[in-house]
């Protein structure tokens, strides 16, 4: 009993301390920094390509390419949306999948998991901390893309009032606010993948296996989403409503798919979060 009380007494501090040390470990890793570097490079690549392509005055795109790309030349802020639309289907979830898949399985394969469990934090709390860290990574990764795109957009293209996809005009400040909102929605869209990755991570003691499985799922699910015969299944796939963030650029905003996306991500987080908890708290930690 006294042990349990001791756990409860120090718990808030412990949780916070654990979270902070987890954050530091995650963001100090070379691998994490490399992932963020790749994410930051995508907007630069897109921006420079559009700039070179339209240097002679011709318009970009012509219908093809990621969403919003034809508007980038008129307003640099659109590069934020283009970059997020380009990275959301693969780069962002892949980075999240790597970090989430490695969260527990990596510790297990490195033999550090049992030392983490020696600390009187408890397994549930450790799992929560890990999940919070992965979610923090989702947010940071999205913001890295958005900020990099904003910088590149401001350097290479003009800024100013922008036209929404409904044809109405909004001021640059409102455009910035919407860009921030879109970045947050994109970050939230990744929560489902994060929970899935964490669950996979509790299944194995090999970090590589967990990462490979998660990234494999990331490749498979969007393919399933493309097969028309499986349309009954589509609304339940985590990637189905991802591009709904573009609905924030309509005037008035079209909320239907956005709320569906948020609801679906919450369901994924609840289902796979609790599955991860069920697995992790009952698992034999041998390494």
């Amino acid at each position: 009993m006294s042990r349990a009380e001791a756990v409860r007494k120090v718990s808030p501090l412990w949780t916070f301390g654990l979270f902070r040390s987890e954050l530091l470990t995650t963001f100090r890793r070379w691998r994490t920094l490399a992932l963020l570097g790749v994410l930051a490079a995508v907007p630069v690549l897109v921006g420079v390509a559009v700039r070179i392509e339209t240097g002679d005055g011709s318009s970009a795109g012509g219908g093809g390419g990621p969403a919003f790309i034809s508007q980038v030349t008129n307003n640099g802020l659109f590069l934020v949306f283009t970059a997020l639309a380009a990275t959301l289907p693969f780069f962002l979830p892949m980075a999240v999948g790597v970090v989430a898949g490695d969260a527990l399985a990596g510790e297990a394969s490195a033999g550090t998991l049992r030392y983490l469990l020696v600390a009187p934090a408890g397994r549930s709390r450790l799992l929560l901390t890990k999940y919070a860290t992965v979610m923090a990574f989702c947010l940071v990764a999205t913001l890295v893309v958005a900020l990099s795109a904003l910088t590149v957009g401001a350097v290479l293209f003009p800024l100013g009032d922008l036209t929404t996809i409904s044809g109405t005009r909004i001021s640059f400040t409102e455009g910035l606010a919407r860009a921030l909102l879109i970045a947050l929605v994109v970050a939230v869209s990744l929560i489902g993948v994060a929970a899935l990755g964490l669950f996979v991570s509790t299944l194995t003691s090999s970090g590589i296996a967990a990462m490979a499985t998660t990234v494999g799922l990331l490749i498979t699910v969007p393919i399933l989403d493309q097969i028309p015969q499986l349309h009954a299944l589509h609304p339940y796939l985590f990637s189905h409503y991802w591009l709904s963030f573009a609905d924030l650029m309509r005037e008035p905003v079209h909320w239907d798919d956005l709320t569906k996306n948020l609801g679906l991500q919450a369901v994924y987080a609840a289902v796979f979060g609790s599955a991860a908890w069920a697995r992790f708290t009952a698992k034999d930690i041998t390494a």
């Binding site: 318009s59 795109g61 969403a67 919003f68 008129n74 996809i165 409904s166 044809g167």
Partner: peptide
């Protein structure tokens, strides 16, 4: 998908705007 086609009639103007191809 991530685009919109608007047909706007305002007074004597009729505008069509296709955001996908701008």
């Amino acid at each position: 998908n991530a685009a919109e086609y608007s047909l706007i009639h305002n007074g004597k103007d009729v505008w069509g705007y296709d955001s996908a191809s701008n």
